[in-house]
Amino acid sequence: MGKVIVVTSGKGGVGKTTSTANLGTALALIGKTVVVIDADVGLRNLDVVMGLENRIVYTSMDVIDNRCELTRALVKDRRVEGLTLLAASQKNNKDDIQPEQMKAICEELRSNNDFVLVDSPAGIESGFRNAAAGADEALVVTTPDVSAIRDADRITGLLQHEGVEPINLVLNRLSPEMVRKGNMVSKDDVVALLNLNLIGVVPEDRGVISSTNRGIPLVHDNSSQAAQAYMRIAKRLTGQRIPIPEIREKGFFSNILEWFSGNR
């Protein structure tokens, strides 16, 4: 029996979809079978971030309306063994799906996969409720800014109320330079405020944008700190105990190296 993990945040634009795509890929790269589900009905994006947009035929709506079997609706990622995507319908809206229907899909998928990752939409309404309905565990994603942290706390309260356990925190877009200068709350501040178990810190990295441009999740190339951070989170999700290293500030030299490797 696999685990169902909802990736959520409350606030939009903090990196839920980026995290789902990279963690799904990372888990598959270390040999797990994974389904990533886009639960952002009407505003789907996980397909483009993963570069699978041209191969989608069916969506979770087709499965719910019995137009297609669940296994046929899954799109295989050909770059890595064991990774599939269940896309969301663009033509429907969030109220067209009921929590029990999402739960049934998650239950079926967990029976023959190690991990089911559900990419939640922003907000605390029906879209979030559907995404969380079938989840045992949650990854709460936040950035180090005031509004994202506040919303993360709010969503944590709702998840606890639903009995989702454990709830782990992913801190995304941390800039060690800004923390050093006192212009960004630190990792320790965020953990103290939210009182959650921190499962990983992903640095601010321009590579995220170029990898999204290409539709190739960052973790396919393990050279950046952000990719390595996602790989470590994936390993922690499988139960490995790996300490969370401090993020290094990029020096002059690594910027030059990056420039030469075209990793921009």
């Binding site: 800014d145 005031v146 212009n183 960004m184 709350v185 501040d189 405020l193």
Partner: peptide, 11 residues
Amino acid sequence: KSSNIAQQRLK
């Protein structure tokens, strides 16, 4: 520092 102000306000 703005990070300290943010932390206080968030609390």
